[in-house]
C-alpha cells in the first residue's frame, strides 16, 4: 500500500487524479478502523493532513461559513458554537475527546455513513459540500444531493472534499442523538433542527434511521406552516404542534432492525427527539426576543 503525502491542495488533487483506487485520509478515525479490521486494503492512502488550507475556516460577506474539510470536531466545538451551533452540538457527541481532536467534518462526509453525526445538522441548515477535481475544478453539491446510499456519495473518484459551505446561524439550532451509552457511542438514531426565522423556514433532518441521512420534508413544511404567524410575535408554540412535528419526523424515517436497535424504537425515539428539540429551539427563539 502506497502512502501519498501531498503538501499542497493542487498536489492532493493531482494525487487523487492519478490514483483512482486511493483512499483520502485526514483524522483516520474511520479509515484506520477499516484497515485495522482488515475490511479494506486500498492501493494507496492520500494523507491530507499536510494540506494547510483544509484546516482553515472563514465567513464570507454574505454570511456563508466556509469550513475547511480538515477542521476537527474539537475546533468546531470551540470556534464555531455561535456561527454553527447545531454543528457544534453534533460535534460534541462524536466519539471521545481523542476522536474529536482527530476527526474532521470532511472525513465524516467522505465516509457518508448514515450514522455520521454531522449530517443531520448540515441537512437542516441547507449546507453544501464543496468538492474539487484537477480536471474539472471545484463544484458545490447541496448536502441533500450528496448522500446516494449506505456509505456512498456523489463524490467522483477523482474529487476531494475541500470544504463545507453553510449559512451562519440566524436562529436556534439543535442536535440530539440516541445511543445506548451516555458518551462515545454510534447513533441509534439522531436528529438535527435549524430555525431560519428570516426565511420562515424550519430545517429538520434525521440520521441513522434510513439508508442515508435525510430531511424530514413533511415535518419541515408542517412546522413552517404552523409557525408562519409566530415568527414576529414570538408567541408560544401552539399545543400539539411539537408532538405532530415529531410524528411527521418519525414517519419520514425508513429504519431497520439491527444490533444497535429496532426499527420501531428508532421511529419512536425520533418522534421524541423532534418534539423536544423543536420545543427547546422555539423557547430559545422566544427568550432571544
Amino acid at each position: 500500500m502506497e502512502f501519498l503525502a501531498p503538501g499542497s491542495w493542487p498536489d492532493a488533487l493531482a494525487a487523487r487524479a492519478e490514483n483512482p483506487g486511493a483512499v483520502p485520509i485526514a483524522g483516520g478515525t474511520d479509515v484506520m478502523v477499516d484497515l485495522n479490521f482488515d475490511r479494506h486494503r486500498p492501493d494507496a492512502l492520500i494523507d491530507l493532513t499536510r494540506v494547510g488550507e483544509l484546516r482553515e475556516w472563514s465567513v464570507a460577506e454574505d454570511g456563508t461559513v466556509r469550513l475547511g474539510a480538515g477542521v476537527s470536531f474539537a475546533r468546531v466545538m470551540s470556534e464555531l458554537s455561535a456561527l454553527a451551533p447545531g454543528l457544534a452540538m453534533a460535534s460534541r457527541t462524536v466519539g471521545s475527546p481523542q476522536i474529536r481532536v482527530r476527526g474532521t467534518v470532511g472525513g465524516n462526509l467522505g465516509s457518508a455513513s448514515p450514522a455520521g453525526d454531522a449530517h443531520p445538522v448540515l441537512l437542516a441548515v441547507g449546507a453544501a459540500v464543496e468538492v474539487e477535481s484537477a480536471a474539472r475544478g471545484p463544484r458545490a453539491i447541496p448536502v441533500s444531493e450528496f448522500f446516494t446510499g449506505v456509505k456512498t456519495s456523489a463524490l467522483e473518484p477523482d474529487e476531494l472534499i475541500s470544504a463545507v459551505l453553510l449559512p451562519a446561524a440566524t436562529g436556534p439550532q439543535q442536535f440530539a442523538k440516541v445511543g445506548t451509552r451516555n458518551a462515545m457511542v454510534i447513533a441509534v438514531t439522531s436528529f438535527g433542527l435549524a430555525l431560519h426565522p428570516e426565511q420562515g423556514r424550519v430545517g429538520a433532518a434525521i440520521g441513522s434511521a434510513a439508508p442515508t441521512p435525510l430531511s424530514a420534508v413533511d415535518a419541515q413544511d408542517y412546522a413552517a406552516g404552523e409557525l408562519v404567524d409566530l415568527w414576529s410575535s414570538r408567541g408560544e408554540l401552539p399545543g400539539g404542534v411539537a408532538a405532530r412535528f415529531g410524528e411527521l419526523v418519525a414517519a419520514a424515517a425508513r429504519p431497520i432492525d439491527d444490533v444497535r436497535g429496532t426499527a420501531a424504537y428508532r421511529r419512536h425515539a425520533l418522534s421524541v427527539l423532534a418534539r423536544r428539540t423543536l420545543t427547546w429551539a422555539w423557547d430559545e427563539y422566544r427568550r432571544a426576543a
Binding site: M89, R92, T93, Q174, F175, A176, K177, V178, G179, R181, N182, A183, V185, V272, L273, R276, W280, D283, E284
Partner: peptide, 21 residues
Amino acid sequence: GADVDLRAMPGGVSNTTHGEG
C-alpha cells in the same frame, strides 16, 4: 431546564433531554 448539565442527564452530552421524561 435549558442550562442543565447534560453530563448529568440520561443520554449525556447527546442532548436527548433537559429533564423531560
